[in-house]
Design a protein around this nucleic acid. Structure first.
Lengths: 206, 206
DNA sequence: GTTTGTGAAACGATTCACAGCT
DNA sequence: AGCTGTGAATCGTTTCACAAAC
């Protein structure tokens, strides 16, 4: 498939969210103009984004909300469940699990690890915290699609390497470091410090 | 000041982090090439990014680590403290506070609010949780630079509006909604669902 | 000889504008 | 008549390449 810009994928995600709202409200048809208005973009952008994947609309009419929801779910790969292992049993992890959208969209946490002896063995959102040193033995016989890394910065790369060795192809990283992984593994890093500094820059330069 | 791309600002943040590492290691001088290697970009990119703000290097030699750290701190507005109000006393907020980089970089939480009666009055990382209905009276006589919104999606816009009315010019939003604010207010939204769906897309389309 | 700073070229993303379908 | 789908034009960002500084 032709390479799609990350910005496009993010907008598709947004469109999906808005379309789901429209669906709940019983709206059956939507124009690119209406979707754009809801999402803070332009109708041309909406049409261009969708056009990379096919033509889903009817000229003169717009898009069927229901149909477009389904198409977008398919495009974004949301028609299935993803098995997630979380490494680091801290606050961010808890917040993620509590976040309804997580399970709702098919992301299911199947294992949780930590190095802290005080946490190992404890219950955690219906799972038992396992010793991070046993990552390999615990995950060897279990399919895991996504690793969420919520460890301190200095152990994140080590954890990432071990996940890669286990054959995991997607990593969501909250540690404030740049992870190095092979080309066939995809990493998304959420760096809170970076977001704060973007704000601080904006506040300063006005 | 000329408009600087957000991608540039984010890279400057990264450079700063790497430079601080170099500084700790006692490295005194760094080339754009070395910085680029550490940050996964190109030397031309590094030089171009810096050139928007001045010329900080010495030809044939590179950049003084110490000097560049200081320049970048200045550019990013990190030479001061930011007073932060957090609205929503949940897990994400806790995670943020515990995150060392937060205080370290001059972001100081001065107030915390929640609507949940069970939480109001409780201690929370050295602060007392206040009733969110009293946001206005509590913040009227206090300078707040940044509001962190960690409420459920359906109250986020209301909270944002009230923060704007209080004169707050920067918002870090963790609620999974698009906030609407006046032009002179800057919003950064961290949408975890979006990050997950980017991963799911990447896993699907390979 | 090395490395910066920066115009110019290349590339990529967004917006325009309109032909074509309903 | 209304709205999509899409080439072409525009705009913004990254990369190239080299003269200038050390």
């Amino acid at each position: 498939m032709r390479k799609i810009a990350e910005s496009t994928v993010r907008r598709l995600s947004l469109y999906l969210r808005f379309l789901e709202e429209f669906e709940e409200q019983g709206i059956e048809t939507v124009s690119s103009e209406a979707l754009a208005a809801r999402g803070g973009t332009t109708s041309a952008q909406v049409r261009k984004d969708l056009s990379f994947f096919g033509s889903f609309g009817k000229r003169g009419l717009g898009y069927s909300v229901q149909e477009l929801v389904q198409k977008l779910r398919g495009i974004l790969g949301l028609g299935r469940t993803y098995r997630v292992a979380m490494i680091g049993a801290g606050k961010i992890g808890s917040a993620l699990v509590q976040y309804r959208g997580f399970k709702q969209r098919g992301f299911e946490i199947v294992a949780i690890f930590d190095t802290d002896a005080a946490k190992v063995g404890r219950g955690w959102n219906g799972l038992t915290v396992q010793d991070a040193r046993e990552l390999e033995s615990a995950l060897r016989d279990q399919r895991v699609d996504i690793a969420v890394i919520v460890t301190p910065a200095d152990s994140a790369q080590n954890v990432a390497d071990r996940c890669v060795a286990l054959g995991i192809k997607a990593v969501l990283n909250f540690a404030p470091v740049q992870l190095t992984v092979p080309d066939d593994v995809v990493v998304k890093t959420v760096n809170l410090a970076l977001e704060l500094e973007t704000l601080s820059y904006a506040l300063t330069n006005r």
